[in-house]
Each structure stands twice: as structure tokens, then as C-alpha cells.
Design a protein around this nucleic acid. Structure first.
Length: 511
DNA sequence: ATCGGAATTG
DNA sequence: CAATTCCGAT
């Protein structure tokens, strides 16, 4: 353990924000519970307190912008006990995510990156809770923007889902989307986004059922995940459509007929509330829950999870082993580092880095922040100079933030009303707390095998990929790159379908 | 700014 | 393994 870090990183129960263990593990690194950078980013994004430092960018779905790189780096350095951390290093780490497909850079926008939710195990994130209205994190997640390349095949009637997502994500962004899509000029990049990978990714099977978690050791003989997942459960057509919509991953590029549908991003509605499978280590029911749910909910939840697992090839661990269990704990949100209650600036269009230099933060009280006796190279970027951003700026409308921060624990106080509040000038984030309603479309799962972007060979793409060296394979960008665009040819079978428009409308309405 | 290789670390 | 550190290239 690195407890050495002196400061606080993970306070215990009440104070901190810690995520449950499983949140620290991704599918691949089971054992390590070290926080990963992207977790951390998500964490920051989740809190209002850090809005000036990093925030979701509403134009696009998983996009976020680091408003104060140095600060973010500092926070990260703190978290990892790496006082020398700086944006340059942090960004390197971020760049490593490109190949992993966790993130990618939004070209043209400074300090702006985008999460590939399909790869993350979002459902694990307690972004907030859901339906009841928990607190809304700063981030409304990103809503898909119009650009969406998602195209729903008109035909499929039966596919899946709808996308209507109840999720919080959905949002209002229609407007935004519209405009975006309409505007032709800039978006070239985004358009291209359709990540090729996604095709592969999203379909990866997950063994939800598989017992591997059981630990018995079951399957170790082979690879961990097995092919075919089956999503046995809850497929109730008509009832709960796929709750989560693919958000970032749709296979089909939509340039042509795109619907701008805002789909909900990954997180979906339910997830967080009762969240799922705890890692073995966690005690299942520790805390109390703030909510109770009934079977329907549970079902719904499970279904959602299943869908999400499936659609996003989430890690199996995200899926509850069985219905019986639920885990409500999730301490809603608490502040991560230091709670700071600062006022937040509205966010003008800062220009990136310029101002940040002077800003400083009051967050670290005093302590030991930078011990660092040994080698420190002093860089021009004087780390120390920044602090206290908030004091400088004040803006109107901050109150809610306070309430959130301070009252972090709340189970849920308000709800959508607030959403609006969060709305930024540009785009209304609003998270509708939508009830899950219904769209009604069946969902179907296609079962595919999985293929991991990084290493697996099976799958459609492979052919093309096969040609290239593994390493390169990774490099493919799912993001824009004009030249490298990959034809999504094969996506024919996807799940979502068209209930789109309506859902959309609904969502919009809701908003 | 951003990218990514290479070496190193825990 | 996921960074961290350094650094040359673009």
C-alpha cells in the first residue's frame, strides 16, 4: 500500500469518495487496485467542485475538456503521490489510452479528450444515481451529439432497443445536436468518429453468466472470456428495451441517414443505484441504502446491466451474479480530494491554458504537499504558483454546487429541476431523470464472440487487422482521421433499432 | 500542443 | 500492467 502518501487519498467511509474496489479494476487488472488515471478523471468529472478544472464538454458525448491542466496534473500527482506530476506526463498517460481505446483526443480542441464509453465500465461508476435524482454531477455526461453517427436502420423493428434512454444522459442535447450536425464545417472530425473499434468492442461478449467469478477457478484453462455470451436474462422484449444505448459505439456511421438521436450514453440509468456486484471484498450490504427497490426495479436493473454488459462488453464483474443481490451502497458522492467549496466560475470561454497559470487552488491546506526533497527539477511551470481559482472568480449561479458538495451525501434531493441549473449556456445538459419508460422494443442480442481490440483475433475486423501488426492494430483510431477512416462495413447486425425517433422525441420532450 | 518511443518504476 | 519520466518530432 502506498499509504505513504500521507494525505488522504482515500478516506474511509464517510469521507471519501472512494469507489468500491471493483471500480478500480478494470477487466484486465484484477489485482491492482491502484487507481487508474481514467478513473480519476471520471471522478473529477463527476464532481462539481472540479468544474473549473475539468468538465464535460457538452457538444459531444464523452468529451471533456481539461480547463486547467496543471491543476489536474497536480491533483493526479497528489493522488498518486507523485509530486512531480505535470500535465506533460499526465497527458502521456492519457495518450496511452488512445491505443487502449479508453480515450481519444478530440482534435482541434485544446485539452479536450473524449472517453470511449464503450470500453469503460461505466456502469460501475456511480455517477450519480439515478432515477431518484441523485445528485447530478457536474457532468452530465455527454450526450451524443448529433453527429451521431448512429443510424438506425429502419428496418429492424425488432431489434433492440430503443434508445430511449432514460438515462440521465440523454439529454437535451438535441438542440445541440442539431446545430452541430447542421453545421458542417467543423465537425469533420467528429464525424469520423465512429470508432471502428467499436464495432469490435461493443460486441464483445461477456460472460455474464459465467461463473468465473466464483472463483473457484473455473475456467482458467482458457482465456478468460468465453465466446458467446449469452444474455440469458431478462430479455423482455417490450418491456425494457435496451436501456443503455450505445452511446459511443455505434457501428454505423451515420453520415447518411443519421438520426440525431441522442442516445444515452453509457451510463445508464440504473446502474448506479444499486449497484452491482461487489467485489468480493466488499461487503455487500454495508451501507444502507438510501433506496429501496422492488422487483421490477431490480429486474429492470438487471436487464439494464445485462444489456450494457453485452453491448459494451463490459467487464463481467459488472454484472450481478444473481438477482438476489443488490448492493446499494454507493456512497453517493463525496468529495475526492479536498472538499473545496469553491465557487465556480461559469466558464466563459476560457482559453485554455492562459489563465490557468495563475490560478491557484486553495485546496491543499497546508500540509505536506510537496515534500519532495530529492530531486526535483524545477521546471518552469512552477507548480506552486497556482492556487485558488475560485477566489478569483465568482459567478452567478453557483449555489447549487455548494449544495451538492456539501451535502454530498444526500441521497437525493432533487432532481431534475436541478438539471436545468446545470445547464450551461451552450447546451443544456439537463439530465432528465427520466423514468424509464418505454419504448418498447425488444432487444436482441446478437451473440458474438468477443474480440479484444488488443489481442484477440476473431471478429470481423480481423481480417483487415490481420494484416497489420498487432501493435499497429491498436493504433487505429476511432476518431477522426480523415485519412484513416475505416469503413464500417460490416455492421449489420446491430442491435439498436429504431425506435429511435420516438424515443428521441420523448427525450426531447422530457427535456 | 500533441504525439509516441524508450527506459524505468512499483 | 499502468503509469512515470524523458525527450525528440511534428
Amino acid at each position: 500500500m502506498k499509504a505513504g502518501c500521507s494525505i488522504v487519498e482515500k478516506p474511509e467511509g464517510g469521507g471519501g469518495y472512494q469507489f468500491p474496489d471493483w471500480a478500480y479494476k478494470t477487466e484486465s487488472s484484477p489485482g491492482s487496485r491502484q487507481i487508474q488515471l481514467w478513473h480519476f478523471i471520471l471522478e473529477l468529472l463527476q464532481k462539481e467542485e472540479f468544474r473549473h478544472v475539468i468538465a464535460w464538454q457538452q457538444g459531444e458525448y464523452g468529451e471533456f475538456v481539461i480547463k486547467d491542466p496543471d491543476e489536474v496534473a497536480r491533483l493526479w500527482g497528489r493522488r498518486k503521490c507523485k509530486p512531480q506530476m505535470n500535465y506533460d506526463k499526465l497527458s502521456r498517460a492519457l495518450r496511452y489510452y488512445y491505443n487502449k481505446r479508453i480515450l481519444h483526443k478530440t482534435k482541434g480542441k485544446r485539452f479536450t479528450y473524449k472517453f470511449n464509453f464503450s470500453k469503460l465500465v461505466m456502469p460501475n461508476y456511480p455517477f450519480i444515481n439515478i432515477r431518484s435524482g441523485g445528485v447530478v454531477p457536474q457532468s452530465a455526461p455527454p450526450v451524443p451529439t448529433a453527429s451521431s453517427r448512429f443510424h438506425f436502420p429502419p428496418l429492424d423493428t425488432h431489434s433492440p432497443n430503443s434508445d430511449v434512454p432514460p438515462s440521465r444522459f440523454s439529454a437535451t442535447s438535441l438542440t445541440a445536436s442539431v446545430q452541430e450536425s447542421g453545421s458542417g464545417p467543423d465537425r469533420k472530425a467528429e464525424l469520423s468518429e465512429l470508432e471502428d473499434g467499436s464495432t469490435a468492442d461493443w460486441r464483445r461478449g461477456v460472460d455474464l453468466v459465467s461463473p468465473r467469478s466464483a472463483v473457484g477457478g473455473g475456467g482458467l484453462g482458457h482465456q478468460k472470456r468465453k465466446p458467446d455470451a449469452v444474455l440469458p436474462l431478462f430479455t423482455r422484449p417490450g418491456l425494457y428495451p435496451d436501456p443503455h444505448s450505445p452511446f459511443a459505439i455505434s457501428p454505423i456511421p451515420g453520415r447518411g441517414g443519421v438520426l440525431n438521436v441522442p442516445i444515452s450514453p453509457a451510463l445508464s440509468l440504473t446502474p448506479t443505484v444499486f449497484s452491482y456486484s461487489p467485489s468480493p471484498g466488499l461487503s455487500p450490504f454495508t451501507s444502507s441504502s438510501c433506496f429501496s427497490f422492488n422487483t421490477e426495479e431490480m429486474k429492470h436493473y438487471l436487464h439494464s446491466q445485462a444489456c450494457s454488459v453485452f453491448n459494451y462488453h463490459l467487464s463481467p464483474r459488472t454484472f450481478p451474479r444473481y438477482p438476489g443481490l443488490m448492493v446499494p451502497p454507493l456512497q453517493c458522492q463525496v468529495h475526492p480530494e479536498e472538499p473545496t467549496q469553491f465557487s465556480i466560475k461559469l466558464q466563459p470561454p476560457p482559453i485554455g491554458r492562459k489563465n490557468r497559470e495563475r490560478v491557484e487552488n486553495s485546496e491543499e491546506p497546508a500540509p505536506t504537499v510537496a515534500p519532495v526533497p530529492p530531486r526535483i527539477k524545477v521546471e518552469p511551470t512552477s507548480a506552486v504558483s497556482e492556487k485558488d481559482p475560485e477566489s478569483l472568480r465568482q459567478s452567478v449561479r453557483e449555489r447549487e454546487e455548494h449544495s451538492q458538495e456539501e451535502g454530498a451525501v444526500p441521497s437525493r434531493t432533487t432532481e431534475e429541476g436541478k438539471g436545468t441549473i446545470f445547464a450551461r449556456p451552450t447546451a443544456p445538459p439537463a439530465w432528465p431523470s427520466v423514468p424509464v419508460s418505454t419504448p418498447g422494443e425488444p432487444l436482441e442480442v446478437t451473440e458474438d464472440n468477443e474480440d479484444r481490440p488488443g489481442k484477440e483475433p476473431s471478429a470481423p475486423e480481423k481480417k483487415e487487422d490481420a494484416v497489420m501488426p498487432p501493435k499497429l492494430r491498436l493504433k487505429r483510431r476511432w476518431n477522426d482521421d480523415p485519412e484513416a477512416r475505416e469503413p464500417p462495413s460490416k455492421n449489420s447486425k446491430f442491435l439498436w433499432n429504431g425506435s429511435g425517433p420516438q424515443g428521441l422525441a420523448a427525450a426531447a420532450a422530457d427535456a
